[in-house]
Amino acid sequence: MPQIAIIVEFETLPGQQAAFEAIIREHARRTVSDEPGCLRFDVLHLVDESGARVPNKLLVNELYADRAAVVAHRASERMPKVGAALAPLVASRRLIEAEVDA
């Protein structure tokens, strides 16, 4: 079975990036430690061509062992709480899911 990559681009509301980042970094830490199928969960800052950080834009880059690990992640009891905490901080969200060829 192929590994599954999930990339999510978030745009935070003005003034909410720090609060968003604190929540998503804790979620990332707990996902990696509590979910054996999560191989990686990085929080990334977008940068422009000059290398300057783009305000209010962050990415998460997750890697799961297989589809079952993604299903388990989405079913985690933590997900509704994290979603509810992030919702008032986010202007937009774009999710990309892909299979990783070995």
Rank of each mutant, 00 (worst) to 15 (best):
M1L: 03
Q3R: 03
I4Q: 05
A5R: 12
E9F: 09
F10D: 04
L13K: 13
P14H: 12
Q17C: 01
A18F: 06
A19L: 12
E21D: 11
A22E: 03
A22G: 07
A22C: 06
A22P: 01
I24Y: 08
I24K: 01
R25M: 13
R25L: 13
H27S: 08
R30Q: 15
R30P: 07
R30V: 12
T31N: 00
T31P: 00
D34S: 15
E35N: 06
P36F: 08
P36W: 09
G37S: 02
C38L: 01
L39N: 04
L39P: 06
L39F: 02
R40S: 08
R40L: 09
F41R: 01
F41W: 04
V43G: 06
V43I: 15
L46V: 09
L46G: 05
D48T: 01
A52N: 13
A52F: 06
R53C: 02
R53N: 02
R53W: 01
K57L: 11
N61F: 14
N61T: 14
N61V: 12
N61D: 15
E62D: 03
L63A: 11
L63K: 13
A65C: 12
R67F: 07
R67I: 12
A69D: 00
V70D: 05
R74H: 06
R74E: 05
A75E: 10
S76I: 05
S76T: 06
M79G: 12
K81I: 03
V82L: 04
G83N: 09
A84C: 14
A85P: 10
L86V: 09
L86E: 10
L86N: 11
A87C: 00
P88G: 11
V90K: 14
V90M: 13
V90W: 14
A91L: 13
S92N: 14
R93P: 00
R93S: 04
R94I: 05
L95I: 15
I96H: 04
E97I: 15
A98R: 14
D101R: 13
A102H: 13
A102I: 08
